[in-house]
Design a protein around this nucleic acid. Structure first.
Lengths: 178, 178, 178, 178
DNA sequence: TATGAATGAGGTTTCATTCAT
DNA sequence: AATGAATGAAACCTCATTCAT
């Protein structure tokens, strides 16, 4: 991957996340990346192709992070790790999550293709496992609720880094005695 | 308000919700509303003005609905009503909520102006009240969590009317013994 | 002539003069005149008709003023009066002259119809008369030059009321020993 | 500068001069230049940017011509050259002058920026110089009058190439014994 | 006389994309 | 791999004008 190709991906991610995909023009991306407009299309065929590449990139990183978390067999530790993972992902991949969330309302196809199906289902089964091991009455519903909480965590805090995130997480950990 | 003006608002809400604001063209709105494109601008000045009008309209309806819920003084009933209200609003104002949610990532200013500040804060204080009355240890955090749950409820289920909503709600009611 | 009709003429003259005919919209005129857009067309058929009415109005006033000046038979007095007339017209009918001048470059047909042919020719023959009586060698060319000076006077000073006008006029009067 | 860019400038100058800036549409310019409409905006950002470019272009040519004339130290020759220059500029840069004059009433900012301040002041001081050297009583006023005459010359004759220009010039030269 | 809702053509501008170099 | 001139469709918006009331 050449330097310029990488710069395009970087700038596009930032702009897509900040302004939205539809509203970000390829010419703006080219300008901010210090690159000719044509190059974007040489590398990514079209605007949608650029988005695909960004999403694939980001998902790769995240899958690797999640896989570590899935190997944990102790249920309490597994749940705690899920929460901690959410926090660290949110901090380190902020732009990517902003993009991912916004796509749900702008590009449902691509959003669902990646976001929902692959990753979240992997996490969901890991959560169900944990609640089964912990002998909860309704482990499926509990897993769903816990998943919703993680999801909400992103949605609630992705835009405002106000330091409340830790206290919110700790409160949940207490509730589940993690 | 003339018939045509109302038709514009109706069609625009539907399209903005389904496709997103940025991606919906005024010419498409005009065509589907059976109206000249110019009329949109006569009535709403701007595309943004049209969005403003839609949001204001929708918020009016919702405020009225929430106000009923806020008058309840019994804490358990109040929490239960909040959940039920979320369900009924989601069903009756589906398009409006889709729009509202999507705006967070496309038009943060207008989204925050209405969605967050006015209405959600009213609800938040009502939740805090309830948890204080119920003698929870950390009523503020509990209210925040409960608010997040309601919010998530929208986010999770707004796109897929798969009948799981009631069971999810009931599960939460059980958890809180409502 | 109703009040509203008169208000339209007044506002339109001001806007046409300040901004130019092409650039002034009928809706702007209506708004500033406190009148419905339709009324303009009821009274003046179309935008051009409004312009015609304004020009006709203004020309009437000016013709009356010039006619006084034309009755003067003493050549020196006649020339001096022409200059003074230019000054007073410029001051009292400023907006109308601005409009008239600008039309030359925007609406040559209507401009020539009134500005050039009718009035300026009347003045031109009066000037020729004067220079003939004063025994100038080339009275036709002198009259043309004097006409040009008057014309320039308008063009030079119509936009900037800087008080230099009198001194400029006096200088010319001295030159011609008026 | 590519061929197409130059063609746009050429066509736009012609149309702006003939019809006025406000009234000339970019689509018309594109059509007559045999160019896509988008190209105009790629090259000049704005319709106003296109106008700016035209004015800057024209002014460059004219400044070069005037500078030659300013180097003349003999006062009579200098005055005569000013008049001759006016005639030749009027013939060779007819369209540009038409545009410049019309801008005074349509786009005063840009017109004044260039037309008045830069060039005309250079000429004015050169005229003052000449009248000082020729020992006129009131050289400042004389220079102003002479400048007005040159200006009028443009205004009077730019639209009608009726051959009267030379005789008018000669008449002035005689008056000033040039 | 006066209104104001409504129109449709046309205006400027943006944008994703192509292509010769 | 990279540029940048060029395109054409479509975007938002303005405007003169009409018409029912």
């Amino acid at each position: 991957m050449t330097e310029k190709k990488e710069k395009i991906l970087e700038v596009a991610l930032e702009l897509f996340a900040r302004q939205g995909y539809a509203v970000t023009s390829t010419s703006r991306i080219a300008k901010e990346a210090g690159v000719s407009e044509g190059l974007i299309f040489k590398h990514f065929v079209n605007k949608q192709g650029l988005l695909d590449a960004i999403v694939q990139n980001g998902m790769g990183d995240i899958e690797r992070a999640i896989n570590v978390c899935l190997r944990e067999t102790n249920p309490k530790k597994s749940l705690a790790m899920s929460l901690d993972l959410a926090l660290s992902l949110m901090r380190e991949k902020k732009e990517f999550w902003q993009l991912t969330l916004s796509l749900k309302y702008q590009n449902p196809e691509i959003a669902n293709k990646y976001h929902h199906n692959d990753i979240m289902k992997m996490l969901q089964t890991s959560l169900e496992d944990a609640f089964v091991k912990l002998d909860y009455q309704n482990p499926l519903a509990e897993a769903q609720l816990f998943g919703v909480l993680i999801n909400s965590f992103f949605i609630q805090f992705i835009h405002e880094d106000n330091g409340q995130q830790e206290s919110f997480l700790n409160f949940i950990k207490e509730k589940y005695k993690l």
